[in-house]
Design a protein around this nucleic acid. Structure first.
Length: 863
RNA sequence: GCCCGCUUGGUGGAAUUGGUAGACACAAGGGACUUAAAAUCCCUCGACCUAACAGUCGUGCCGGUUCGAGUCCGGCAGCGGGCACCA
């Protein structure tokens, strides 16, 4: 018998699907819609196994929902702007656009053989001028709606090349020229007013039950709502214009534990003091020599500079504290100033120990006596009662907060304030390969938006990357423009947008990819929301939060219906694809296809290099990455085993939210199983030819057949697999499909029943293995596309059991088992149990203390 | 440093969400078929103890709640993701 030949079968059906436009979708008001979307890829040039996993998951959902009668939208596009294209331009002297479009063509060619049910007619790339033109148009609407503004913000600055560096370049030194050092530098930049929606973005998280709890929690913490008190501290010996220092705190109850105050190196007071204090100026300059990331600031050693300024206690004018400029205080959070209470804040404590400041405990743990409590190297942040705090003594933390807040407010030096950690979204990038910000700087009229009829503001193609910096800055012809308002000579904005803007509305554009406006009302109302969004958990905060914001901003400017301000109804975050790592004796990484396993036993696994024959060390399985060379190319796998094998393996074994380990033996097992299904389908088919019998499935479903084991198992499988697919348990669905295959294979049922079961199996496998399923479908004489067939429904009579099996525990340990009729009452069950030999042996005539019968589940005898 | 996860046999994982731990696979070992190999099929497979039945231990580590804990609570360790200019 022939083997299942994926190289022949898969392209055959793919061609037929394409020619008959199987997956092209239109608005159809008569059907319920289902929009399934996987996060679109960055066109790096090659697809990787992570893509295969991501898009297979989406395809399983799309095909399943389609079989359930939904009008399914399943589009694909490209997140095409970004840094790698510029790096390629610098390294290989190729235009970022040419590089990107070539990569898109390559990746599309690698993706298509996977047989995904994608409506390719909706495809676009975010670097298409048409797409980013609409983005510019919305930017202008948002600017006019007050959702966009400019302000100063710091960037990573390379003082040698005079260019802005990405955080990644700072961390990994990936810049195209060696980075001498990094400084923080202030630039005027464009911002989206995301903080306007902070409360709404936070509150709305509670109304998203189909998002993972962890993602909602991460977003909640990111938004970081806190209720606190803004306190005005009087200043002594400060420059004239600084009378008070505003400090935001969530722990006003610890005010009596204060021993210093601190301000950010970027605080106006610090800058003013530095004018006459060279040492301070140097200190501030030194502080700026770290990257802008929060991680860099938090992990840097905490250092401070003591200023001559004193901060006066708002409660007792005779008390004052030193004021430090400290590197760990962020200007962007609160007021950029803190009061330091070392006993109850770890950072403050580290700082106080370093500069020998007082550590006064003011919160004592509940069950500890005041005089027995002291602070060592760890700050105390737990619950307790207030001590050393005059009129607050003995109170709870909550009471103390309320009381001190009232007291300070009465004195006019306190203000209750709700604060958010969430900062406005800075979208300016000093780079070429991004969506130009459609704004013109006119010496007379100031900063004004480009006229909409002039959109898109297209990127000029004639640029080069032979010197550092943004080539737009030196493109005089592109820069020169006349002011849209007064007509005088003006200059284009050269900043482009953060690529997160591009990915914040692509899902909306997919609903009407050719519309003359950013979105089409009728279509977006039909298709939105995305019913199921699937992507990596690494996007849990930024991409998803920005998209939620952008949907609101689009709604406010008339581009998004109210129903879609939470654009993703359900979110699924999938794990990564990992592989073992291999290194030769010199420590060089070796790809998996250049090693061979020569010994595999429980105790030992030994690999050698294929080229040198020398032994190779096996390292842990980690995320596939080019740098560790532990990658397997999907195209090679499809070539060797076929798309269905790759898809099947990706869905089997590992739960989709967890990392999956790619193993050769796993893929081979997947391949063997598909061969087995193929073989089995042919055996049953040949058998039925011999019998020369007509297929008639109806009699087998009537009441007399309800005891047929194969039918029972088949219908149980339909039930189980349907539930698994509904709940994203693809690995469990696959396990049930293995079981059903084995049951059919071992069954002694008639060929009619077997053929019936086989057709069901093909249908149930279809979301994972569409080509193989279609091939079997067609072998069994159906001329239809299996993907168009309605999903099988289980017949309830097949699912019911008449007996129940009760495991019997004694003191929680399983000792026996009993089979009883389903409706037996608990008294009867109890008496049967007490006469079971294993139980009587243990009881030895004594009476059990208690017998717990959980109906339908378990029995526990307590002795 | 901060926020969020994860941890079950030699391996990937399952466990009806507090009710029989190890489903389904992979690897390994043994056997059948075969001149041989491949392919396929069958058997064994957490550890300890045992001739076998039985029994004891066992879900990263320590402790708690419960008739009963992989599942809930407290603490710890290891690994991973994010930290606002990688996408």
């Amino acid at each position: 018998m022939d083997r299942y030949n994926s190289r022949e079968v898969e392209p055959k059906w793919q061609k037929q699907w394409e020619e008959s436009e199987q997956f092209k979708t239109e608005v159809d008001q008569s059907k319920p819609k289902y929009y399934v979307l996987e996060m679109f890829p960055y066109p790096s040039g090659r697809i990787h196994m992570g893509h295969v996993r991501n898009y297979t998951m989406g395809d399983v959902v799309a095909r399943y929902k389609s079989a359930r009668g939904f009008n399914v939208l399943h589009p694909m596009g490209w997140d095409a702007f970004g840094m790698p294209a510029e790096n390629a331009a610098m390294e290989n002297n190729i235009h970022p656009g040419d590089w990107t479009y070539q990569n898109i063509a390559d990746m599309r060619a690698q993706l298509k053989p996977l047989g995904l049910s994608i409506d390719w007619s909706r495809e676009f790339a975010t670097c298409d001028p048409e797409y980013y033109g609409h983005q510019q148009s919305m930017f202008i609407d948002m600017l006019e709606a007050g959702l966009v503004y400019r302000k100063n913000a710091t960037v990573n600055w390379d003082p040698v090349d005079l260019t802005v560096l990405a955080n990644e370049q700072v961390e990994n030194g990936l810049g195209w020229s060696p980075i001498a050092r990094v400084e923080r530098k202030e630039l005027t930049q464009w911002f989206f007013n995301i903080s306007k929606y902070a409360e709404d973005l936070l509150a709305s998280l509670d109304k998203m039950p189909n998002w993972p709890e962890k993602v909602r929690l991460m977003q909640k913490n990111w938004i970081g709502k806190s209720k606190g008190l803004e306190i005005d501290f009087a200043l002594q010996d400060a420059p004239q214009e600084f009378k008070t220092l505003k400090v935001y705190t969530t722990r006003p109850d610890t005010l009596f534990g204060m021993s210093f105050a601190g301000i950010s190196p970027d605080h106006p007071l610090a800058l003013a003091l530095a004018k006459d204090d060279e040492k301070l100026a140097n200190f501030i300059a030194e502080c700026r020599k770290t990257a802008t990331t929060e991680e860099a600031l938090e992990t840097a050693e905490k250092v401070g500079y003591e200023t001559p300024v004193k901060v006066v206690s708002p409660l007792d004018e005779t008390k004052s504290y030193p004021l430090y400029v400290a590197n760990f205080i962020l200007m962007g959070y609160g007021t950029g100033a803190i009061f330091g209470c070392p006993a109850h804040d770890q950072r403050d404590l580290d700082f106080a120990r370093k500069y020998d400041l007082d550590v006064i405990p003011v919160v004592c743990p509940p069950d500890v006596a005041e005089n027995a409590f002291s602070i060592g190297t760890e700050a105390y942040t737990g619950p307790g009662y207030i001590v050393n705090s005059e009129f607050l003594n003995g109170r709870s933390i909550e009471d103390a907060k309320t009381l001190i807040s009232k007291t300070l407010q009465r004195k006019g030096v306190g203000l209750e304030k709700t604060n958010y950690r969430l900062r406005d979204w800075g979208i300016s990038r000093q780079r070429y390969w991004g969506c130009p910000i459609p704004v013109i700087h006119c010496p007379k009229c100031g900063t004004i938006p480009e006229k909409k009829e002039n959109l898109p503001v297209e990127l000029p193609h004639d640029v080069n990357f032979d010197q550092p910096g943004n080539p737009l800055n030196r493109h005089d012809q592109w820069l020169a423009v006349s002011c849209p308002t007064c007509g005088s000579k003006a200059k284009r904005e050269t900043d482009t947008m953060d690529t997160f803007v591009d990915s914040s509305w692509y899902f909306a554009r997919f609903t009407s990819p050719n519309a003359k406006t950013p979105t089409d009302k009728e279509k977006i109302e039909y298709w939105m929301n995305v019913d199921q969004y699937i992507g990596g958990v690494e996007h849990a905060i930024l991409h998803l939060l920005y998209s939620r914001f952008f949907a609101r901003a689009m709604n406010e400017t008339g581009h998004m219906p109210e129903q879609a301000i939470e654009p993703f109804d359900a979110l699924f975050t999938q794990g990564m694809v990992c592989h073992e790592t291999y290194r030769d004796q010199e420590g060089k990484w070796i790809p998996p296809n250049e090693v061979k396993e020569i010994e595999k036993s429980k105790a030992k696994r030994q690999f050698v290099s294929l080229s040198t024959g020398k032994p190779v060390d096996v390292g842990p399985s980690i995320k596939m990455s080019k740098s560790k060379k532990n990658v397997v190319d999907p195209t090679d796998i499809i070539e060797q085993f076929g798309a269905d094998t790759a898809r099947w393996f990706m869905m089997s074994d590992s739960p989709p939210e967890r990392d999956v380990e790619w193993t050769t033996s796993g893929v081979e097992a997947a391949w063997r199983h598909l061969q087995k299904v193929w073989r089995l389908s042919h055996e049953i088919y040949s058998e039925s030819l011999k019998k020369d019998a007509k297929d008639d499935y109806k009699p087998i479903l009537n009441g007399e057949s309800h005891h047929d084991n194969l039918l029972r198992e088949t219908h149980k499988a339909i039930d189980n697999i349907t539930k698994c697919l509904e709940s994203f348990a693809f690995n469990k669905a696959v396990a049930h499909l293995y079981e059903l295959t084995n049951v059919i294979s071992n069954s002694k049922a008639s060929h009619i029943v077997k053929k019936y079961a086989m057709r069901i199996l093909a249908q149930l496998m279809q979301p994972m293995t569409p080509h193989l399923s279609q091939e079997i479908w067609s072998l069994y004489g159906s001329s239809s596309f299996i993907s168009r067939e309605p999903w099988p429904t289980p017949v309830l009579e097949f699912l019911q059991n008449e007996d129940l099996i009760y495991p019997i525990q004694v003191n929680g340990k399983r000792r026996a088992e009993i089979v009883v009729p389903k409706d037996l009452d608990s008294q009867e069950i109890e008496s049967r149990i007490l006469s079971l030999p294993p139980i009587t042996n243990i009881l030895k005539g004594s009476k059990p203390k208690k017998i717990i019968i959980v109906p339908g589940r378990i029995v526990n005898v307590v002795i």
